[in-house]
């Protein structure tokens, strides 16, 4: 987990450096910072309920290969947490049923290569569709009593996405999107969650 925090911080710094450089290379790069709200589905929902998570953050870079197409990278940090006192049957595969106050966490770190196609004319409001393919590092943690049960896995995954980009300044864009994150089964767990994002991008 700590290593990922370092990687995330370094990526954030690089995005800042790239942003300054990109402003000199007008139109080629799109550097975005985004805040999201997410809601879990499937195993994610089962573990941390289906509530809304307000703890999500992403950075990304997109390189325009043509007027309508970008290729890039996407890094995010999605945190789901849930408090419950429900009973867990067959706790950790031990056959024991356990109840008590619990904090449950899912920390997901998508690392995706992305491609997006844009509609409309450059400089105007543009809708886009695309997505990412790559890997998700996901840690599941259950704190109960004075103990913690932790499992972490690398998942292959993909994330289709649609959104809209709105010009704010000559080199600044606001963008809204909906992203479906699908981390394929690893370690017996499959995570899926929807993200609704609002971000700013520097071009």
């Amino acid at each position: 987990m700590k290593n990922f925090m370092r990687v995330f911080a370094i990526a954030l710094l690089l995005a800042g450096v790239g942003s300054a450089k990109a402003q000199a290379q007008e139109g080629n790069w799109f550097w975005g910072l985004q805040y999201m709200v997410t809601t879990g589905m499937s195993d994610t929902k089962e573990f941390v309920s289906g509530g809304i998570s307000f703890r999500n953050f992403a950075i990304e870079g997109r390189y325009a290969t043509s007027r309508n197409l970008t290729l890039g990278m996407y890094f995010a940090w999605n945190v789901f947490n849930h408090e419950t006192d429900s009973t867990i049957t067959n706790f950790g595969g031990t056959g024991a049923d356990v109840s008590g106050f619990q904090h449950r966490y899912v920390n997901a770190f998508p690392i995706l290569a992305t491609a997006h196609y844009y509609f409309g004319r450059p400089g105007g409001v543009r809708a886009y569709a695309g997505g990412g393919v790559g890997t998700y590092y996901i840690e599941n943690r259950l704190d109960i009593g004075r103990s913690a049960l932790v499992s972490d896995n690398w998942h292959l995954g993909l994330a289709p996405e649609v959104g809209v980009i709105i010009p704010v300044d000559w080199n600044v864009r606001a963008y809204l999107n909906v992203k479906y994150n699908w981390a394929l089964k690893a370690g017996g767990v499959e995570h899926t969650f929807f993200g609704f994002g609002l971000g700013f991008a520097w071009m």
Binding site: F57, N81, G95, A96, D97, V98, G100, Y105, R146
Partner: peptide
């Protein structure tokens, strides 16, 4: 800050009580 890994916390000793049955 919002995305802190483990944002929850124990607020009273009763929250550490654990009941296990086998």
């Amino acid at each position: 800050v919002l995305a802190a890994c483990y944002p929850g916390e124990i607020t009273n000793v009763a929250q550490t009580d654990l009941v296990v049955t086998v």
